[in-house]
């Protein structure tokens, strides 16, 4: 198994010692523009995401929140025509450098999707173990430990410990989403990206996930896209507001600041308009 402390490429062999010990990592984005074919979806985005914190992305739909999130773990280029310009630095290492293998980036930066997507052909156990098995190097007993630890970490263990060999698709929507979180954290990523992880869930499951996010930020850098402003206010430390000037125009980052400030006293008028429900 690739150790989390191992650098993505030879480029960063000289990382500072502290960064190697600390699992959560800081992301610096510089001048990032992403395209779908010839359509420019987001333009010139720069921001810093602090380690061991929750950063929320808010903004009207179509402004490119998901697109931007997917550029952070190089999932954007999987879409046909998907193309990225600019820099994403993970603790000083450029994820888009030519020596970097996107497969390794995705092992380091985990992702949870809008719709819960456990592998339907796998049991609950195998779903959580899937990422470890990809990495290859594991022992059987070790695997069971990691699965239990991850399911506990996702607050799901008590609900599924008697049915680990049942298919994951038999769980409720909220349980499936927590299963997906367990699957993502089982490989010990340094960053966890979540794209509207609660939008398909009922309020109780949503609360369960929000609590979980509060616990996970002790260990991971978390970025969450949400449509729900109360959710952003509840779970995040920092909030980034995205907007687009008109339909068909690329989305831009309007401002990023401490969540408290964004919701009480944002520095840009558009942010205040959006938060107070005047548009979007």
């Amino acid at each position: 198994m690739r150790l989390p402390t191992e650098p993505l490429s030879d480029l960063s062999q000289d990382l500072p010692k502290e960064a190697v010990i600390d699992m959560a990592k800081r992301i610096d984005v510089g001048g990032l523009t992403a395209y779908y074919g010839s359509h420019k979806a987001i333009e010139d985005i720069s921001m810093t995401v602090e380690p061991r914190s929750v950063t929320a992305f808010i903004g009207p739909s179509g402004c490119g929140k998901s697109t931007f999130l997917r550029t952070l773990n190089r999932m954007h280029e999987v879409t046909p025509g998907g193309r990225v310009e600019g820099k994403v630095m993970l603790d000083g290492e450029d994820l888009y450098a030519s020596a970097v293998d996107p497969v390794n980036v995705r092992r380091t930066i985990g992702m949870v999707f809008q719709r819960p997507n456990p592998f339907p052909t796998m049991s609950i156990f195998d779903n959580v173990a899937a990422g470890l098995r990809l990495n290859g190097n594991y022992k059987k007993a070790e695997l069971a430990d990691v699965v239990e630890k991850s399911l506990r970490g996702a607050n799901l263990w008590n609900e599924v410990k008697d049915r680990l060999n049942k298919p994951g698709s038999g769980l409720s929507g909220g349980q499936q989403q927590r299963l997906c979180i367990a699957r993502a954290i089982a490989v010990e990523p340094q960053v966890l990206l979540m794209d509207e992880p609660c939008s398909a869930l009922d309020p109780i499951s949503t609360l369960a996930i929000e609590d979980l996010i509060g616990e996970l930020k002790e260990r991971f850098t978390i970025v969450i896209v949400t449509h729900n402003m109360q959710q952003a206010a509840r779970v995040s430390d920092r909030t980034a507001f995205f907007n687009l000037s008109a339909v068909g125009q690329p989305g831009r980052l309007i401002e990023i600041d401490d969540t408290e400030r964004i919701f009480s006293n944002p520095s840009v008028q558009a942010t205040e308009d959006y938060i107070s429900g005047r548009f979007g």
Binding site: V103, F113, R115, F119, P120, G131
Partner: peptide
């Protein structure tokens, strides 16, 4: 389903592993 292929990709699966897993 695209969503399961993306799930595999996001775990760091190679193209062949995506095929094998989903």
């Amino acid at each position: 389903p695209q969503m399961h292929q993306e799930a595999a990709l996001a775990l760091g699966a190679t193209r062949w592993e995506v095929i094998r897993m989903s």
